[in-house]
Amino acid sequence: MVPSSRAAARAERRARARSATRTAVLAVALPSVAALGVFAAAVASAHPPPHRPPSAAPLPGGPDRQAAARPELPDRADRTSRQPADLTAEPAARRTGEEEQAAASARRFSLPVARPGLSAVFGEPGAHWSARHTGIDFPVSSGTPVLAVTDGAVGTQWHPAYGRLATVTAPDGTRTLYGHLRAYRILRGPVRAGEVIGWSGSTGNSTGPHLHFEVRPDGETPVDPVPWLLERGLDPR
């Protein structure tokens, strides 16, 4: 064979080899592409794309009807949903404060003896007084504890008519008098309402054991102790 024939034979063999290679590659690649297409279709059917609603068509009836059909704005809904204020809270709190104040006021005062009941009242005439009775009398037995009616300062003295007399001067100047005492517990000094200052007796111008009690708001002029005590939540009757 001549050289040109051999070259031509070699070229033909190389062409056949390349053709066989392309056929093999296509035989492998085409099924793979088909498989990928099937997989993509399965994924698309399992996860469909989100639904996009069509653009809203204008409502019939013009702008006024469209505005009426819109939902309320959030800020307007909040304003209309607020509950009215509780109008009973403040009066209830005020009543509670007044009750506490009344209770505190009552704690600042005390009856002069533990057992109420009167044997003589204010302004009563009688042979035992130079004019009229200037206080009230509690018919208690001798030795009954006598209590300070107010906070204040205690003073004591002997008086021909009152016998052993104790006085308590309150911070506002009111003086309370306790007459005919058998003995003193406090001669002088500070005292709290309800504290024992002495014991009842029958000293001075007295016909028997009792406590004579007076109230003098200005420190000098006696007034009826009954309404004065009642105003402070205490009933001596």
Score class of each variant (00 low, 15 high):
residue 3 P to D: 14
residue 14 R to N: 04
residue 16 R to P: 00
residue 17 A to Q: 12
residue 19 S to G: 06
residue 21 T to C: 00
residue 27 A to C: 00
residue 27 A to V: 01
residue 29 A to W: 05
residue 33 V to E: 01
residue 34 A to L: 14
residue 36 L to F: 11
residue 36 L to A: 10
residue 39 F to W: 12
residue 41 A to N: 06
residue 41 A to Y: 07
residue 43 V to W: 14
residue 44 A to N: 12
residue 45 S to Y: 15
residue 45 S to N: 14
residue 48 P to F: 09
residue 59 L to H: 12
residue 61 G to S: 09
residue 62 G to K: 09
residue 66 Q to W: 11
residue 68 A to Q: 14
residue 68 A to S: 08
residue 70 R to S: 06
residue 74 P to D: 06
residue 78 D to V: 08
residue 79 R to Y: 05
residue 86 D to F: 04
residue 88 T to N: 05
residue 90 E to R: 13
residue 90 E to K: 11
residue 91 P to S: 01
residue 92 A to Q: 08
residue 95 R to G: 00
residue 95 R to F: 03
residue 97 G to I: 03
residue 97 G to E: 15
residue 104 A to F: 04
residue 104 A to Y: 09
residue 108 R to E: 12
residue 111 L to C: 00
residue 113 V to F: 05
residue 114 A to S: 13
residue 116 P to C: 01
residue 118 L to A: 03
residue 118 L to Y: 13
residue 130 S to H: 03
residue 131 A to C: 00
residue 134 T to C: 00
residue 136 I to R: 07
residue 137 D to M: 08
residue 137 D to W: 13
residue 138 F to L: 08
residue 140 V to K: 11
residue 141 S to F: 11
residue 143 G to W: 10
residue 150 T to A: 09
residue 152 G to W: 08
residue 155 G to K: 15
residue 157 Q to E: 15
residue 157 Q to H: 13
residue 159 H to N: 15
residue 167 T to M: 11
residue 170 A to W: 06
residue 170 A to S: 12
residue 174 T to H: 06
residue 177 L to M: 10
residue 177 L to H: 14
residue 185 R to D: 10
residue 185 R to H: 06
residue 188 R to S: 13
residue 195 E to F: 05
residue 195 E to V: 08
residue 198 G to K: 07
residue 200 S to F: 05
residue 202 S to N: 03
residue 206 S to I: 00
residue 207 T to V: 02
residue 209 P to D: 11
residue 213 F to N: 09
residue 216 R to L: 15
residue 221 T to F: 04
residue 224 D to Q: 05
residue 225 P to M: 05
residue 228 W to I: 02
residue 231 E to P: 04
residue 231 E to N: 13
residue 234 L to D: 14
residue 235 D to E: 15
